[in-house]
Design a protein around this nucleic acid. Sequence first.
DNA 1: CCTTGTGTTCTCCG
DNA 2: CCGGAGAACACAAG
Length: 286
Amino acid sequence: MPELPEVETIRRDLTERILNKKIVQLDILLKKTVKNDSNNFRQELLGDRFTRVDRVGKLLIFELKKSNRFLLIHLKMTGQLVYCFGKKVIAGGHSDEVGVECLPNRHTRVVFGFSDKGKLYFNDMRTFGYVKLVNAQDLEIVKAKFGIEPMDKGFDLSFLKSLIKNRKTNIKAVLLNQNLIAGIGNIYVDEILFASHVLPTRGVNRLSDQELKLIVKHSKVILKKAIDNRGTTFNNYVDASGRKGNFIKFLKVYGRKGQKCKRCDGVVEKMKVAGRGTHYCAKCQK
DNA sequence: CCTTGTGTTCTCCG
DNA sequence: CCGGAGAACACAAG
């Protein structure tokens, strides 16, 4: 379940490994993963080079040198982008648990091969993820749909207040809404609200400035700490080296249903909020 | 049955 | 009846 910290980790890793290397191989193992015509897609990428890897929310954007188009990659729930050198996954890979020791594997959908023998595998068990070439104009349309990056300076109390003005929904739905705030998913939203002592079901029109301030602060602190720890591997996320993220050891509520609260003597409960499984402590979140 | 990110569709309300 | 908000559904596979 890659969210902002996981996608950012992949972006940084790939930036160090694939930039300015000629694309010499392109295998499409599952056509529906590629949202362009397969032949055009191959033809356009072969011989070109990635000059930059960007991220907006959970979406990766690869800038091309020759083509005036951009490659978008969305991992959705089970997508992985694993970079290998030769046949070996570099920097090791917890292969016993995430199954990337043998590539391509049964979940590999697209393979990018570079002139230095490096290979980038797009694996996706549930096949919700996609790769797509778009032109500059379409890229701007896509970008415009995303809300503010929560780690940006501009995301502060007054900005959050402007987002929730006249809204009637709960705070969890707002934090998950990519059109309002980009990159927070189901794991980090529960962690942010726990850290802020705020119940996910709270209506946004009833939150105090103090509570909103805490939500802004903990959004930044938790996402940063998660990036510093290379993200969270709960089910099958791996970084671009096939390694798992380390943030799971810092999770305080997500996935802890029935366990003792880490902050008080309550017990972590689980309910459905905004259509998602939601973890919280009813005793110390208000 | 459950899990989730996002786009689409439905429904409600003023 | 329109627009917008928010909820519900669709998608997939283990």
